[in-house]
Design a protein around this nucleic acid. Sequence first.
DNA 1: ATTAGGG
DNA 2: CCCTAAT
Length: 628
Amino acid sequence: MSSDTSSEKDQSGFVKECQDANKPSKSVISDEGSCDKSGFSRLSSQTNNKNCGLKEFPHLAIDGDAGTASIVTSSTCLEGFIAEKLVDGNSHFKVENVTSTVNLDSSDYPKHSNFKLHGDTSKGKDELHKFEKVPIGSGIDMCSFEDPLDDNPPALISLGGNAKLSGYNDRIPCSLLSKSRDNVPVVSRDDDENSYGCTHPINTKTKSFRLKTGIGDNRISKRLASNFQKVAEKTKDHTHSNNDGDWKRTYCSKRNCNKHQSSQMNIPFKKRKLFNYRSVSNSNELIRSGGIYYSPENCMNQDGCGSPPGMHKDPGMPSLEACQHQTLRSRGSHVNLRIKSFRVPELFIEVPETATIGSLKRTVMDAVTAVLGGELHIGVFLQGKKVKDDSKTLLQTGISHQNELDALGFTLEPNSSQSLPIVCAAHSPGPKADITQPVIRYPSSPAVIHQRIQGNSDMLPEHQVTSLGSHFENDHDSAPSPVNASVEKGMKDSKELVTVPEMDEELAMVPVHQKSKRSEIVQRRIRRPFSVDEVEALVQAVEKLGTGRWRDVKVCAFDNAKHRTYVDLKDKWKTLVHTARISPQQRRGEPVPQELLDRVLVAHAYWSHQQTKPQHKHHPETETVFSF
DNA sequence: ATTAGGG
DNA sequence: CCCTAAT
């Protein structure tokens, strides 16, 4: 009923500028001063700034392609995840405690840039949630920005509790591989902070965020790969000088690195050990292997060994083995396990060299959150094999036996195609610490990156890293990964020790196509609470346009906020009306000024009335209500 | 593609 | 926010 009502609305008198949104071109509408009245002009801030810093970084490898630099993090470690798990006879795992240990170890890797994620309380609530709810959340070390040109150890990126990414990148020697043709950060998204419009030079269409699995788009936003990339048998010409030559070099060097990296693998913790990394490539899939480590110290230091209910502490127990022995002795008791950290797979980031540090931060943030986002499942490995039967008790499985315990490992398995499998690095310190934990699934979202790499001939399948679910270009709208929800959820799941139906190491490697099905599943967009400014804009637009013209409202007031669809606006209005009607005590989230809520009610009442009796001419008095 | 509403 | 039905 709104199709031809432009004239009617005109008559209302207060629909001045945006009244004919239906017909006028967008530009006309958006240019209307009234729309900017509430400060919207600033909403359309550009994401791309001119201040660029990347190009100044050493070790930057850029291909002639364009202006995008790619940063590859060979692996990401979620350090500081110190969760103690108490296992009872029923195989129920509980995360007893999660401490926040931010571990930033960059000293060893002077050549690499460091990024640190730290909390920023000033951030929007939603934003904060991304990490505050991440169980692993307290601290995350993203290790290694591997330099493709040399085998330097990776730098560490420490991700602290919440949201904001601050980077001190004196240098970003990481692997900067290629540039995209448009100088657009591949991994970019609307900035949450300014939810309004970051105008992305590319792909402004909202619908584009529905990623298609791998269809030729050269701009791959993110690339995630395991740092344990299989050393492909076929080492084809890595020296090709095609656009992806850099990539190839990177991968090649990476391969070499793997062998040496094991010892320095972003594992700040002394006792940590990484065992053989083995990866198997199954057609398109990249498979990784991670080590498992077990921290004996924790046993001691944290009274984990002795404290658990049902266990009598033995102060004299100096090692894990001791603990385990004890466990053995007290059958039917508890098994104390401590997972010290989870390693996140390699991250591939591509940003234009003209990208600002800020965008780089966001990019890294996106990559990290993307990894952490999505549902996570826990996989349990014993002796390198995955334990699938959830019903078995630890005792039955043999986890209570010391020798078995030594080979016990966990993996974080991203459920959605979007996230990468996070390798849980947990190994037992025992003398037999040579167990390899094959990383399970590889999120095969055959994203663009895939295409690109493939297109570049030489890339080995293993190196066809999957992107973070989708290239960010198309993912702007859903860019910020739903870390909080996802991770939170994942943790819940982890408590239950969800076992994925996969078996042998070999089987554990899920072929891409299989996962691709999953990748098709559209992920729920992250929640992005409306800011007061947005509400203000919405209210004003609705006052002008009415409640039945969401498309116009969108164009008028949120044309630059690509992540806000007219449906979103409609929904928001719905909630606003509801919010305005309930008592302030019942309201949640960022409080909306009462003044705005009042306007919401007035506007809503007004337009409802108009709808009821559209034939009726507007009374001059009603206009006064909206005169501002 | 939009709009309206329920979930 | 998502999903669907109806336009």
